[in-house]
Design a protein around this nucleic acid. Structure first.
Length: 495
RNA sequence: GGCCCGUUAGCUCAAUAGGUAGAGCAGCGGACUCUUAAUCCGCGGGUUGAAGGUUCGAGUCCUUCACGGGUCACCA
């Protein structure tokens, strides 16, 4: 028998030796199932509130599986803790209860092994809820030593590469992913209650659309065609609104072939939802409701602690025109703001690698570099330039602006929403403008999707649509500064 | 991709000025029947991320590479 790791430490050799001894005794190390009465979590949940006397009187018998985390041996008695994903409970093992032979058998168990403990519940002298073991058996042997009990697993790289170790050793990591799970569950509940239908649309697309980003490319052998991993579900979801799904949402992965940093992972999870007959102003109300609902359900309050900031979700949130936001936070004089050439030049100094070519793009760059990071409290940034919003309606009052908002919280763009462009002629023209930009070398311009335009030709009702990044949302709700902390297996280079 | 920082025992971390690589936890042996970072006595454990270089001598200085973190660029 060989372990994956070729050079074994003395500790691993010892564990292999123990495993051999166990087998020699004919004891099953990897059984098919465990007859349990409670999980560790359930033991704590159901019995922690009971007094010493109540436990004595009722004599609760339990069979509980768990991973051994810490062993304290004192001659003919041993204490250890077993844990599941959510909790831990102490076990007390006595030679006079299990017998000498069984007691010595426990020497073959190590920290990290998964064990089934059968016994009755009591409280120790210090009051800790404990299982007095009467029987115990292997559920799985662990052949590698676990990280240190006190500091846990600190190495960031190891935590991501071997997330299971992170989850075993660092309870706060498990808590983060429980919050993430709650967020997704509560979002579904929120939209389901409002009559939305949840759908799944293609992850592999012939024309990747719905966002301005570079896609991953792949190939389908049988059809002999190039396919792209989707950068957004947007165009498919709006086809469904054309088809009569007036309230529709999808929670699923998007893929963008871009760099990796504390706010970006190449695959990330997006909520997109569309509701017919409303515009982006009504989406702002809905967004406030959603976030408040999540905060109350998950944290039981309307504020979130994020780093040393407190983010208040109390309504109404600030609504700031894109133009005002740039003026206010960038320090540009209004006269200069309106000087398009000057703005393009100024923005070019901020992104020397990729000079913005249009006024709208230049403003967007200034917003990204100078403005966004300064906005901490939830703020709707309304009416950004039209030419960076090829799928949005124009604003009624100012046609060079889009009927759109971006939601900024803690310096991060959390949501993006607009009144969907429903006019097929204008949509086609916008696509063609994007295609022209692509010809000048802008790889992130939107591709022309005539199949989508044709769908619009059948009639898309007035529709409000919004995308919310689930990973970033989780960062805010779980107080994490890196997106890798809220993705179980973030992309890392192979070792 | 650029710049900065990091990589030492299974894990968490030390190692003055370049001079024999250490500790705690974990492990092994012993004592111990209410411990809980158990305690007490003893023992083993290292190609210092990889490769090259400078030097009498390199964990430490230099070069290249790998991986990670931060930051900038690109993006959501």
């Amino acid at each position: 028998m060989k372990l994956v790791q070729e050079e074994l430490s003395d500790q691993e050799l010892v564990r292999l030796e123990k495993w051999k001894k166990i087998q020699e005794r004919g004891i099953e190390v990897f059984p098919h199932r465990a007859e349990k009465t409670h999980s560790v979590f359930e033991v704590v949940r159901d019995f922690l509130h009971l007094s010493k006397e109540e436990l004595e009187e009722k004599n609760y018998q339990v069979k509980v599986p768990g991973r051994i985390l810490a062993i304290r041996k004192m001659g003919r008695a041993t204490f250890f803790h077993i844990a599941d994903f959510r909790d831990r409970v102490q076990v007390y093992l006595r030679e006079d209860v299990v017998g000498k032979e069984n007691y010595e058998l426990f020497d073959l168990f190590d920290i990290g092994d998964i064990i089934l403990v059968e016994g009755r519940l009591f409280r120790t002298r210090t009051g800790e809820l404990t299982i007095l073991a009467e029987k115990f058996s292997f559920l799985a042997k662990s052949f590698h030593p676990l990280p240190e009990k006190w500091h846990g697993l600190q190495d960031v790289e190891l935590r991501y590469r071997k997330r299971y170790l992170d989850l075993i050793m660092n309870p706060e990591s498990g808590e983060t992913f429980r919050i993430r799970s709650q967020i997704v569950a509560k979002i579904r509940q929120f939209f389901d209650e409002r009559g939305f239908i949840e759908v799944e649309t293609p992850m592999m697309q012939v024309i990747p659309g719905g966002a301005l980003a570079r896609p991953f490319k792949t190939f389908h052998n049988a059809l002999g065609i190039d396919l792209y991993l989707r950068i957004a579900p947007e165009l498919y979801l709006k086809r469904l609104v054309v088809g009569g799904m007036e309230k529709v949402y999808e929670i699923n992965r998007n893929f963008r072939n871009e760099g990796v940093d504390s706010q970006h992972n190449p695959e990330f999870t997006m909520l997109e939802f569309y509701q017919a007959y409303i515009d982006y102003n009504q989406l702002m109300d809905l967004t406030e409701e959603l976030f408040l609902y999540l905060a109350r359900e998950i944290h039981g309050k309307e504020e979130l602690q994020y780093g040393d900031q407190v983010i208040s979700l109390k309504r109404p949130w600030k609504r700031l025109k894109f133009r005002e936001a740039v003026l206010q936070y960038s320090g540009l004089a209004p006269a200069r703001f309106d000087d398009e050439k000057n703005i393009i030049e100024f923005a070019s100094t901020l992104t020397p690698d990729k000079k913005p070519l249009t006024y709208g793009k230049a403003l967007d760059v200034i917003f990204d570099k100078l403005v966004k990071e300064k906005i901490v409290q939830p703020t709707f940034i309304i009416n950004p330039p039209k030419d960076i919003s090829p799928l949005a309606k124009s604003d009624r009052e100012n046609p060079s602006e889009a009927a759109r908002f971006e939601l900024i919280i803690a310096g991060m763009e959390i949501a993006n929403a607009f009144s969907e462009l429903t006019d097929p002629f204008e949509q086609r023209q916008r696509f063609e403008e994007q295609a022209a930009m692509r010809k000048t070398g802008d790889e992130e311009s939107h591709l022309v999707d005539l199949d989508y335009v044709e769908a619009l030709e059948y009639g898309l009702p007035p529709t409000g649509g919004e995308g919310i990044g689930i990973d970033r949302l989780t960062m805010i709700f779980a107080n994490k500064k890196s997106i890798r902390e809220v993705i179980l297996f973030p992309l890392l280079k192979p070792r």
